[in-house]
Nucleic acid binder design. Structure first.
Length: 608
DNA sequence: TCTATATCACCC
DNA sequence: AAACGGGTGATATAGA
């Protein structure tokens, strides 16, 4: 299908539904309109539930059009309907066509209508109807009719929006983005298994835990009032101890973690204060969206960032807050989860798309950081991560710095070295990878001259005269990485892999313990295939971390904090004999996650 | 009291 | 003017 007129029919769809935080959608009604004939279909909740499939064809010859289609497709899944083969999501298309631009009224349906000069349903009325839908049933006859009318008004809005947007839509690529919305709907539905027993205890005792964290640090110098860090007391403390402190232009002391770290080097008594500030950093566990079945689900906000990444709410999504909280991720009885991520994905993308032979070789070596140090002549050929760990680390930081467009001053700060050394390191990168640097500069020039950049599959970003060149230089890596993620998500969900969530350069999947190894291999195959397609042949490595019930997921960076918090928690509220959170919800009777301190018996798999 | 901005902390 | 890419979100402060 290369063009819209190749389709037998084009259907515009909208559902009204209720979706409690962390829960699954409860459809109230659906309206579908055939674009050419104008034929209208209005179904209420009972009619929807009585159907085993949508009452219209959804094969390759029929186009399904919606605004943020994962919502509609989520209702399809809830109704146990088959998924449409061809999806056009006008929200994804609107985000693509306006990526990097300021839009007057946001990127919702209303905003898209206004942007295209079309009249929209009044925002007030929209809000009222949304509130009614969220309230849920039972509805009076009048309310049901009002919901259907409102649903239809959105479909009519879509019918006006489609022809307005059509001239700028690149259909084959738009269908690829639509295809991802189907994958997103599946991931949003599956969600992430959470140890709700421990989550509930954390929620109940969180304020007590924070107080205990303060009390546990003997050297807090009375700088905290409860758990609030008092800036005026801190300034008195600095004066009393003759500590010169950096100030912001605004006249207040710089309190960021970097400042604390560097100052603590010179004045070690500051270290415990830094630790404490770090531990107490704001956290709202209440917003974590966990459904009655103990799974973390939230809208992924597909195409939410200008590089086309997902942008789920950090408060609702378990991968948003600090890493130690990922200890709450725990497979249920007889199941396992696996976190599978690409290793040095952006470096691999840069190597493939720039065709820099040295960078290519460095990626293929399996350890680009070590390879870079060797290519630059800083270490001998026989050097290893173990023999030259410190030098490898410097070259690693250099590679990461280059990917973000960092300058010598910032790199020096990061490496705690002098600026001349940092400049030298960056210069080594330029000398080692000259083809990459020409490619990177060409992308920035292209953006400045033509006003936009795009990925291999046509994800756009607009760039005005004031655009940040570092942002433009980074775009190819980040945005093509997002393309790779989306393609892998499509392949995996279409092949029946239970993908719980995407995490920028990784996926969390789930399977019965007996099948997890095979599912990990299948997922790695999807990710390998996606990388080959996006990068014209280069296959990127992935690593997998498997966690089986009754263990919990844990990021190594979070182990210490998790242990501290759990220690305090067990003092405040001894662990119940049996953690029964799963049997509460009828999922299993073997109990849930054994003990809050059960970490991972983690098994690593690499496909390199 | 509400809203806008600045700063900070966290994620990949 | 600064020079670390893409984000979300909490909190403090200033101004209407």
């Amino acid at each position: 299908m290369a063009a819209l007129h190749d389709f037998r029919a084009i259907r515009l769809l909208d559902f009204e539904y209720r979706q409690p935080d962390g829960g699954r959608p409860e459809p109230h009604c659906m309206v579908a309109r055939e674009f050419h004939t104008g034929r209208l279909l209005r179904l209420d909740a009972d009619e929807l539930r009585s159907l085993k499939a949508p009452p219209f064809p959804i094969d390759e010859e029929n186009l399904f059009v919606a605004y943020y289609a994962s919502a509609e497709l989520g209702c399809f899944l809830e109704l146990d309907w088959p998924m449409p083969a061809r999806v056009l999501d006008l929200c994804a298309e609107f985000k693509n066509s306006t990526s990097g631009l300021a839009v007057p009224s946001g990127r919702g349906l209303l905003g898209a209508l206004i942007y295209h000069g079309l009249d929209a349903l009044a925002a007030v009325e929209k809000e009222e109807m949304r509130a009614l839908a969220m309230r849920g049933g039972p509805f009076t006859l009048a309310e049901k009719a009002a919901l259907l009318d409102y649903c239809q008004s959105d479909v009519d809005a879509l019918a006006k929006l489609l022809p307005a947007m059509l001239p700028k839509i690149d259909l084959p690529r738009a269908l690829l983005r639509g295809r991802y919305m189907t994958a997103a709907a599946r991931m949003e539905r599956i969600g992430i298994p959470i140890d709700v027993g421990t989550l509930d205890r954390l929620r109940r005792k969180w304020s007590g835990i924070r107080c205990a964290l303060v009390d546990d640090v003997r050297c807090n110098y009375g700088l905290f009032d409860g758990i609030t860090f008092k800036v005026d007391r801190f300034e008195q403390f600095l004066a009393a101890n003759d500590i010169p402190w950096p100030y912001l232009p605004s006249g207040s002391p710089a309190l960021d973690d970097d400042t604390f770290r560097s100052m603590a080097k010179a004045f070690p008594l500051l270290w415990s204060i830094r630790e404490l500030r770090h531990a107490l950093s704001s956290l709202r566990l209440n917003d974590l969206a966990v459904g009655p079945d103990g799974r973390n689900r939230c809208m992924l906000s597909a195409f939410g960032s200008k590089t086309g990444r997902n942008q789920p709410s950090n408060a609702k999504f378990i991968f948003g807050p600090s890493v130690w909280l990922r200890g709450l991720i725990a497979p249920v009885a007889r199941r396992a989860v696996a976190y599978i991520d690409w290793g040095q994905q952006e470096f691999g993308i840069a190597a493939a798309l720039s065709s820099d032979p040295a960078m290519f070789a460095a990626y293929l070596s399996g350890d680009p950081y070590l390879a870079f140090a060797k290519q630059a002549g800083a270490i001998p050929e026989h050097a290893t991560k173990e023999s030259h760990g410190d030098i490898r680390e410097r070259f690693k930081q250099c590679i990461l710095a280059v990917q973000y467009g960092m300058g010598a001053e910032s790199l020096a700060l990061r490496l705690s070295c002098n600026v001349a050394d940092a400049r030298q390191l960056l210069e080594l990168h330029r000398r080692t990878y000259p083809v990459y640097w020409r490619w990177s500069q060409a992308a920035v020039d292209h953006a400045m001259l033509r006003g936009h950049l795009h990925t291999v599959f046509g994800w756009l970003v607009h760039a005005g005269p004031g655009a940040n060149p570092r942002s433009l230089a980074n775009f190819a890596m980040q945005a093509n990485g997002a393309e790779m993620m989306r393609l892998a998500a499509c392949l995996a969900t279409e092949r029946g892999i239970r993908v719980c969530a995407p995490v920028h350069d990784a996926f969390l999947i789930e399977a019965p313990i007996t099948q997890i190894d095979a599912e990990v291999a299948r997922m790695q195959a999807c990710m390998a295939e996606a990388s080959r397609i996006v990068l014209g042949g280069l296959e990127l490595r992935t690593d997998a971390k498997i966690v089986m019930h009754p263990d919990r997921y844990m990021d190594k960076r979070g182990v210490e904090m998790w242990g501290r918090v759990m220690g305090i928690l067990s003092r405040l509220e001894p662990v119940p004999m049996r953690d029964t959170h799963l049997s509460h919800h009828g999922i299993g009777t073997c109990g849930g996650v054994g003990h809050p301190l059960n970490l991972i018996s983690c098994k690593g798999i690499s496909n390199g």
